[in-house]
Design a protein around this nucleic acid. Sequence first.
DNA 1: TATTTTTTAGAATAACGATTCTTTAAAATA
DNA 2: TATTTTAAAGAATCGTTATTCTAAAAAATA
Lengths: 193, 193
Amino acid sequence: MGRQRTFDEDHVLEQAMQLFWTKGFEHTSIQDVCEYAGVHRGSMYHTFGDKHELFLACLDRFRHTLRDRLFVQLEEPGDPREVLTRFFDTLIDRMLDENKQRRGCLIANTAMELAPLEPCVEVRVAANLLDMEHMFHAFLVRAQREGKLKSKHSLREMARFLVTTKQGLHVMAKTTTDRKMLEDACKVALSLV
Amino acid sequence: MGRQRTFDEDHVLEQAMQLFWTKGFEHTSIQDVCEYAGVHRGSMYHTFGDKHELFLACLDRFRHTLRDRLFVQLEEPGDPREVLTRFFDTLIDRMLDENKQRRGCLIANTAMELAPLEPCVEVRVAANLLDMEHMFHAFLVRAQREGKLKSKHSLREMARFLVTTKQGLHVMAKTTTDRKMLEDACKVALSLV
DNA sequence: TATTTTTTAGAATAACGATTCTTTAAAATA
DNA sequence: TATTTTAAAGAATCGTTATTCTAAAAAATA
């Protein structure tokens, strides 16, 4: 009974996420999101609550896609060094994609814009960074078990190092379009694995 | 002839910088700055122009202190690895200082909040990152000349790697108070030098 | 068809913040 | 002391944005 939702809730969330990703929380108005997603303000508030709730939903969405992608990429065959090189290469590709105006990573962006001011945001960002650490760690454990790891560091230290490197690249890519600069940093980082 | 400025222009700029540093550009209102620095809005606009100009002045101020500090720290005596370890240790100390609510680095914060949206900001951020690269590079050149460098990478690559690592730490420190986490990342990074 | 629920359109509200302006007080100098 | 410049107080303007509300149209079901 009653009219059904005509817009695709999931699609709207995706559009909202894209906008927040590109312009940040403060520089994106609810109106922006409504126009971009083709949904009326009323429906937006009715469906997703206020701007903060909407943003948190977007953040969660981003977290999950990031997590899924990392999981898939670290499962790929090859030497650990090869796998990580491929991972960082495609990362750099995405970062430099002209169409995606150096938007970086929503997690890293949010960490800088909102994390210390908003506890709800902070826990999510922290959780994501920890997630990444765990996934890198599991990857390294596997590699070590297969005897393919040369590093003399503990796997925990290595995992943390890899997460930090990834975040550093996101900062660098905000002002650089020089692929070589990013590749150089990666090359050195991965020589450790 | 005529009354002289009673407030210390330099001090006001410093206070403004501290606020922008802690809360970011959008989350800091001109009124905030005026109250914090104890100067009236009118004087503020008269002296520094609008909010953007004020921010740019703060950014430049930050750049120069950062530059000076890095210069001093990289001039200190000791093996290159020791010097860099000390540098990153004091960096971590500052990042975790309870009084400075995880404000990170104004350059990195600004890179994420404003860089791709504001050309004037972008050039300054980019210039600063390049500055750091050059200073690390000069440091490595000196170290190599003294035969104290073991790395097999080019010095340019190493310098870029170090800048990236520093930026990565700033992102991590936004949501972590776990010193060990940051130290682990540094330890791995510096094992390369 | 009558009822229900959800969509829109768009007005209305209610801050907040950047910026400007006017006036008055204060200090410096000629 | 007269003049000049600046500071401070505070009102006023103007634009943006989050949020809510009302009314009307649209679709689903009983």
